[in-house]
Design a protein around this nucleic acid. Sequence first.
DNA 1: TATCTGACAGATACAACGTACACATTGGCG
DNA 2: CGCCAATGTGTACGTTGTATCTGTCAGATA
Lengths: 251, 251
Amino acid sequence: MPAQQAPAGGTPAGADDKAQASLWERLARPAPAPRTTLTPQRIAEAAVAIADAEGLDAVTMRRLAGELGVAPMAAYRYVSGKDELIELMVDFVYGQLPLDTPADGWRDAMRSLAVHLRAMTLAHPWTVRTATPFSLTPNQLAVPERAFAALAGHGLDADTTMAVFRAVSGYVHGSVAAEVALENLRREHGWSDGDQTRAGLAPRMTWLMNTGRYPGYERYLYEATRKDDPDWQFETGLDCVLDGITAHFGI
Amino acid sequence: MPAQQAPAGGTPAGADDKAQASLWERLARPAPAPRTTLTPQRIAEAAVAIADAEGLDAVTMRRLAGELGVAPMAAYRYVSGKDELIELMVDFVYGQLPLDTPADGWRDAMRSLAVHLRAMTLAHPWTVRTATPFSLTPNQLAVPERAFAALAGHGLDADTTMAVFRAVSGYVHGSVAAEVALENLRREHGWSDGDQTRAGLAPRMTWLMNTGRYPGYERYLYEATRKDDPDWQFETGLDCVLDGITAHFGI
DNA sequence: TATCTGACAGATACAACGTACACATTGGCG
DNA sequence: CGCCAATGTGTACGTTGTATCTGTCAGATA
C-alpha cells in the first residue's frame, strides 16, 4: 500500500489538509524532480492562457494536457483535481498583481490596490466564477497583507482594520463582478459597444418595462448619460467607500 | 420544418433574444397548456430545494427530473438549457426577497435592503456561484427598482443614483461572497465553529505564516477578537459605505 | 358527441467531461 | 552499471448536458 503517493482523496480532514498544504510546498520547491517537463507554474500558465482566451469552460483536463503536449492525466501529478487546478490558476493571476506602490498615505494606497484589483479581474474575467474572494493561497493573502501595511499606524484595532479592508475589497469584488457579467453578455452575443448592447437587449427590456413594475429603472434608462462609462461608475463608488472610511473611523 | 417550436438554438442574436424573452413570458402565462404537470414555478422550486440541500453541483437535469417525477428531458420544454434553469432558480430566490419595507428615509431603506440581500444569499449560498449580480430577470430587477424609489427626492441625478446603488449592492455581493466561501469551506470539512475551523486550517496557515511574507496578517490573527462575528463584520462595513454616501454626496 | 391537433412528456442515444488505475519510462544516486 | 522513486502514458468507467424521435393527452371544432 503506497500511502505516501496520493495527494488526492475525499478522506477525512487530516489527510485532506496535508494534501492542500503540499500543493504550495510543491510550488515553492525549485527542481527536486528528475524529469521536469511539467511544473505547477507551467500548468498554471497554460491553464490561465486557455481561460483568458476562451473562458473557464474551455479549461478541461484534456485540453490543458494537449496545450502542454502531455497525456490527459499528466497534470494530476501536480494537482489533486480540477478544483485545485483552479486554485492554482487564481493564485497565479494574483501573483501578477502589482503591490509595490509607494504608499502616499492609506487612501492612495487602498485606492491603488482597488484599481489594480479591478484591472486584474477585467483582464481575467473568469476569476469571478471561482466565488472565492481571497482564499488562503500565497498570492491572494498578499492582498490583505498589503492593505494592513497601508492602514497601520492610524490607531485602528485589528478587527477594524480588517473591516476596512473588507469594505474596500468587498466593493471591488462585487462591483467588478457586475461589470464582468455585462461584459460576458456582450462578448457572447457579439455586441461591441453600448448602443449595440442596448439594441440587443431591447426586446427583453421592452417586455420588462411594459410590466410597469420598474418606473424608477425606466427613468434611469432615459435620463442617465454615463451608462457607457464603467470607469466613472467604479471610481465614483470607490471614492464613496473611501470617504465612508474617513467619515466612519475618523482617519 | 417546424421553425416555431424551438426555444433553444445557438442561432444568431435575433432568435436567441426571442427565446430568452419568452422564458419570462411563459412564466407569466397562467395556464395555457392542456397538461400542466410541469410549470416553470414547480421546476424552479424543486431545483432550488436541491441546491439548498446539497449544493449547486447536485442540481442535475436527471436529478431534477427524478425529484419532479418526470423523464430526464421533460424540463427542456420550459428552459432552453441548464443556464436558463439557473437563471430561473436565481429569479425564484429573488422573488422571496422582502422589498416592502416602510422606508424611513433612504438610509434605513438601503440598510434594510442590504441586510435582506445578505440574508437571502446566506440562505441560498449557491447563488454566489452564478456570477451575475442583477441580471435582467423580473425579480432581480426589482432590487435596483426598490433602491431607486428609496433614493428619489434627494436631488441625485440618474447616474449618481445608480452609482450609490452599485456601491451598496457591490459591497453586499462581494462581502457576502467572501462569507459564503468561508462557510462552504467549513461545511465541506465538517467544522462547526470558529475554533474548529482555525484548528483545521492551522497546518496551511502555519506554513503560510512561516514564509514570513504576512506579518500584518499574522498580527491580525493574534489580536483580533471579532473573527467569529460575521454580523458585526458585515454591518461595520455596511455602515461605512452608507456613511460614505452621506459624506460624498451630501445627502 | 366524435374527432382532430398541437402542446406535452418519455425513451433512446451520443459526445465530452473528470478521474481511478495499472503500466512504462526517466534519470540521479549508490 | 543498475536500482528505485518520481514522473508521464494508456485505457476505461461513470456521469453529465442535450439532440432527436416517438407516444400521448386535453380541449377546440365539427
